[in-house]
Design a protein around this nucleic acid. Sequence first.
DNA 1: TAATTATATTGCAATATTACGATTAATTAA
DNA 2: TTAATTAATCGTAATATTGCAATATAATTA
Lengths: 109, 109
Amino acid sequence: MGITKTEIFTDEQNKLAVQLKAIAHPARIAILQLIIEAKACICGDLSSELGLAQPTVSQHLKELKNAGLIQGTIEGVSVCYCIEPEAWKNLNDELNKLFSSYKDFNNCC
Amino acid sequence: MGITKTEIFTDEQNKLAVQLKAIAHPARIAILQLIIEAKACICGDLSSELGLAQPTVSQHLKELKNAGLIQGTIEGVSVCYCIEPEAWKNLNDELNKLFSSYKDFNNCC
DNA sequence: TAATTATATTGCAATATTACGATTAATTAA
DNA sequence: TTAATTAATCGTAATATTGCAATATAATTA
């Protein structure tokens, strides 16, 4: 089939999966890191910094934006991207929840 | 082309991307949650609990195992899966590093 | 307005993912 | 050894992702 059966999972599980998928690519991890360090937040700068073509970077930025993780501000002829604080915090919280729910000692096997 | 240019990224970025991709699916999130709560750790139990066919669950388990996030122990005729503590802790650390590197005030735009 | 600069979109080829029926392999029980 | 039980693998169809050249769009400057 090739299509994820989202209807059998909770909204939380689906949302977490979508946001994780957004950051589950080395280029998008690198983009987030560059944006956070503010070494680059302009598509063109990211493109030359990463060594990926401009349309490719634009597409990655779009996916991060679709997941709500970044936001773009028009700055003259270019667009400056930065982290969307709410979503970033929210994803951090959800991940903390997941990871902290595991205690070493409750292994069942 | 359809293939990720892993060679232009660091090993850390690539490894993080691989592990995130492994958990970036609602079924695999659900599987991890069930394993952690030890409500189910057997492929068949997970299958009926999730409402996904056995081969599908088996494939998801394989991907989590390939990413090093879970391990399987043969228990008679079935296999019991549980979290691989080292990798789990490592991924948690890497994510904490990424998320904590962002400070609200260093927005550049 | 026309030229310039930068980003977004389109279209496409190559590859990867998702899901599952059918089958095979492995282990235990009779 | 045979039957039963469970998990893994194979094969396949449907869909999604990745990367980029070509092009379109938007904003600024001359």
